[in-house]
Amino acid sequence: MATIIAMEFKKMMRSRGMRAALLAGALIVVLQTGWSFRHIYLENEQSYRKIAEWTYGDPGYGRWFECTILEGWLGCESFSSYNMLYFLILPILAVMPYGLSFYNEWQSTYSAQIIVRCGRGKYLWAKYLATFISGGIAAALPLLLSLLLSACYLPAIPTDPVSLQTVLMDRSMWAFLYFEHPVCYALAYTGLDFVYGGLFACITMTAARWLRNRFGAAMLPVLLHCIGYYCIYNLLPETESYLFSLYLDPNQSWGMVGEISTGPVVLTTVLLAAAVTGIFIGSNRKRDVLTD
């Protein structure tokens, strides 16, 4: 099993889709970091130089705050459009590396070569794992890169609620981490996005069989994401904790969506993962290796 998993991982990391996804993510990160540095950090530095000029009557008197790492991080920086852009295309980035690999191999009958050498079960699980990891990497690596770049010029200090630098409220998910341990918050959320990146890739992989249209299958996670965000939430706002469209973004829609909490998020994630895994493995376990 280890051999086939290693083989799938090697193929996944070497795929053109992985390079393209990481490049696209890195480009967004670099542009966003440049924007933050210029419009957030340097602006704040300019204010800092004026501290000596403050007088009692000055509205800015005593009102300076050091910028924190999350203000420059792609996940929480909401003044520019990069955060919105990144989380809108996150499902596409996740699918790009390996989401259609299984479909392509099955259609070309390359999968037959693998199945007769290691068995169907091992092949399916190895493919599922590699696809999941590929989607996770494509989703999470840009966030990690952004965190690293932010750390190079912004300190990892707690966010002061008086500063108006915050994007979350106390009732937001993991608010304690956000305010007290910003790096932990960023890493925890990156982990969550890693999982969902993996699930998006696996949804495409699973759905491609029935959709029989590669573009349609690749767009399915984006479609689900948009339906959740623009449709279901507006019709049924009480479902906020169960809609991944709302809690994928670390700024949690600027803390404005009710009360997203960990329990329902975990439940939704587990159920979604179980459903996708079950459908993929179950539907392919006894499937004839034939070109559809």
Binding site: T55, Y56, G57, T159, P161, V162, T166, M169, D170, A175, F176, F179
Partner: peptide, 19 residues
């Protein structure tokens, strides 16, 4: 201090992480 404004009283209250 003489130049201070006694009406400069808009100071926020903070609880948990809310102001």
């Amino acid at each position: 201090e003489e130049e201070a404004d006694t009406l400069n009283i808009v100071n926020p209250i903070v609880y948990v992480h809310t102001r």
